[in-house]
Every structure is written in structure tokens, then in C-alpha cells.
Design a protein around this nucleic acid. Sequence first.
DNA 1: ACCTGAACACCGTTCAAGT
DNA 2: ACCTGAACACCGTTCAAGT
Lengths: 231, 231
Amino acid sequence: MAAKRSGGQSKQSERKVPPPSGPEPRSDQPLSLQRIVATAVELLDSEGIDGLKMRRLADRLGAGAMSLYWHVGSKEEVFDLALDSVLAYNGPAPIDASEDWRGEVVHMLKDWRAGMLRHPWSAALLPRRALGPNILFRLELLSSTLSRAGVADADLNVAIWSLWNYVIGATTTRASFDLSDDDRAAAQQRLTSLSEHYPTIERSRLLLDNDWDGAFSKGLDFLLDGLVPKQ
Amino acid sequence: MAAKRSGGQSKQSERKVPPPSGPEPRSDQPLSLQRIVATAVELLDSEGIDGLKMRRLADRLGAGAMSLYWHVGSKEEVFDLALDSVLAYNGPAPIDASEDWRGEVVHMLKDWRAGMLRHPWSAALLPRRALGPNILFRLELLSSTLSRAGVADADLNVAIWSLWNYVIGATTTRASFDLSDDDRAAAQQRLTSLSEHYPTIERSRLLLDNDWDGAFSKGLDFLLDGLVPKQ
DNA sequence: ACCTGAACACCGTTCAAGT
DNA sequence: ACCTGAACACCGTTCAAGT
């Protein structure tokens, strides 16, 4: 009878975003795309990608189960909209005059990764869907900054894809390791017990080092070293 | 009775497995984990990740719908086993004496990527699951090769993760672009129509260049340049 | 030991119908 | 224009039961 797993929300919902400035979310508020998407993000944050069910989403909105289908074509569309809404870039656009292109690139990529880690379901979704305007804006910003840094047009494509790949790979991996503490502990234990077969992995402490942020930064530095050699 | 969408198999099933000939499942061969996993891979290859249903899998095996549950605990376990079975490394182990560490690394990573692209559902699955023995073996091989190349133990962790991230990101992205020609064409059209807002992306031909293999190689070269600077 | 059908508790979505 | 409940066609899994 009581809510099944309503306790799970405590982690991330510290945010006090009551949509832009509107009144409090009440159950008799009319439905709208905005409210649907915002609530979908909340639900995804607290219940994970498999936790988004149309019926549950409608429930949270205080609406009848099928009301959503007037505003939205399908569940897939909800995913697309939720994903895009989470990728908005609010940081400062790089200044054309700035000489610190590298600092700007690092900042943009860290911000991108941090945003996705705040919504751990988003990273795995991103490479599977058409690119929305928010992520395209981020790619455009990245491209123009790299271009100013001296990357030739002919290399720009490869440079962008390399950074994209690195960020997507790092973030999906990190997010999934984050999901289940139990699974992770079990995996580590299992690995340690097998580690005689994997001596080099053991030596490098591959799965034992928890400094994900540091590893991301260092790897990114190496990649940028390769993409735009220091001279 | 008749197969629903058996036409979808034409792409990848060049393999000469005799079973898939008649609409009605063949023999009264006994069920086994091996057969279940092999058939699951077939099904995933032809129908995609959402196409794997326990009932359909049992059907293809000529078994009653619920028989699988004696061999397997859950659908999740089928995913884990199918994924691991696809990641086996058959290539030559690197020779300790070889000086061409870089060629070996490139070969191992290309082989890894190619294997996953042969089973387009696998890349997205990999970062979400515990690491199985086959992928651990690949990581161990990679680690020891990099170690011989002169990467310090303190940097090995970052180096492996960077390469992991790059391969995972590149492969999930490429595999998803491969899935639906229609979606892709639509996305490109949409992008072109919006391209006035994204001049640098347009200039770099970011989404128009189809040379995925070349882009993967070049980006990997840049990354390796950064990880192990030429001297 | 191995396999099975019936049954349960779901889900996304269609549809005719309400206001 | 906006919302709704009933209903359909699924799906993973449990279970008591068969051989």
C-alpha cells in the first residue's frame, strides 16, 4: 500500500528549481510539455532509466494515465526531450580574444561531463539519439574554440570526434559504476580474487582507484597533447 | 506461425550455421547454456537489443517458453553471457620481444572495435555491466603491452581508461548511427537545414564525413601520441 | 534432471468517449 | 482543446506439475 521506493529520491533532489518562477507544482495544475519533461527528468534521476514508466510519470503529475499522449507522441519522445533538456549549456561562451583556448576546452568538457553525471541516465542515451540543439550548440562552441587554437579544418572532424568519444566513454562508464554500490563491491571482490590472472591490471590498480575526476582530467590532457601538440 | 520479420537477418547472418532454414524450429536437440547464448547472440544481431525476448528466444530454440529458466536465472543473465561471448579475443598475443608495441596496441583496439561493430548491441552494453573474463583478458593484454612500451605504472591506470573511453565512445556512437538509415538521413537533413547556426560544425563536415574507420584510426593516433610521446 | 502451460503482475499504446 | 478509463497486445517471471 505504502509507496514502494519513494525513499530513493533523497540523493539528487536538493535542487530548488520550481520551474523558472511559476507557482508551486500542484496536482491540479494543467499539464504541459514543460511540466512533463521536468517531471520525467526527476523520475529518471531518482528511479533510473528503467524507472520511467508512462503510468508512473502521469501519476507524479497528478494526471490520468493516458493524458500524456495528448502532449507527447510516445515514450521515446519523452526520452528525447528529457535528454535535450539536461544538456543545456549555461557556462560563459568563450571570448574570441582569449588566448587560453586549452583552459576553455577543458572547462567546457568538464562542465559537459558534470552535467551528465548529475543525471546518470543521460550519458548512455546521448549516443543513441539524434543530436538535439543543446548538444549541437556545445559541439559548435568546442569546434570554434579548437579552430581558434589552430586546429586545421581538415583535422577538426577527427578532433571533435575524439573528444566526443572520450567524454561519452568516460561518462557512461563512470555513471554505470555509480549506479549500484553492491554490484560494484561484488565486482571488485571477484576481480581481486581473479587478479592472479591479470597481474598488470592488478599492478595498475585499474579498478581500485576511485579518483575518477583526476583520471578524466589527466586523460584529457594527454588527448589534447596529441591533438594540439605543444610547440 | 510464419516468421514475423525474418527478413531482417540478411545483413549479418552470412555465417554458415545450418539451423536457420525452415520457419519451424528444427530438431529436438536438448537445451544447453551454449545453445541458449549462441542463439541469443543471433537474435540480438538480427533484431537489436529490444528484440531479445525470452519467449522469442525459446521459440528459436524450439523449446517451451519457460524452459530457459532452468538454465538461466533471468534475462539479465542472458545479456551478460551474450556480451561476454562476443568479446573473446582470438588474435595473436603480443610477442614480448616485439619492438612494435604501438602497432600491437592499434591492432588490439581495432580488433576490439571491429568485434563489437559486428554485434552492434554489444558496445552500449559493455560499460553497464561487470567486466567478464574476456574483456579483462583484453585489458590485461593492453596493459602489459603499454607497460613494455614504457608507460610508468603510475600512468597505466589513466592510459588504459583513456583508451577504454575512446573505444567505447567511438563504438557506441558508430553502432547507433548504423542502426537506422532513415533516422540518420532525417537527422542529417535536419542538421543541414539548421547549419547556419552551427557554422564551424558545418565547415568541419562533422556529420557528413562517412569515413568512420579512418576517423577512428586518426584519433587513436593522436591519443597515443599524447599517452606515449615520441622521442 | 529437465521441461512445460497456466497464471500473475505488469507495460505502452489505441480508442471511443467525456468536458 | 484537453483529458479520461477500459481494453488490447504484449512481456518477464513464479509456480505447481509433468517426464
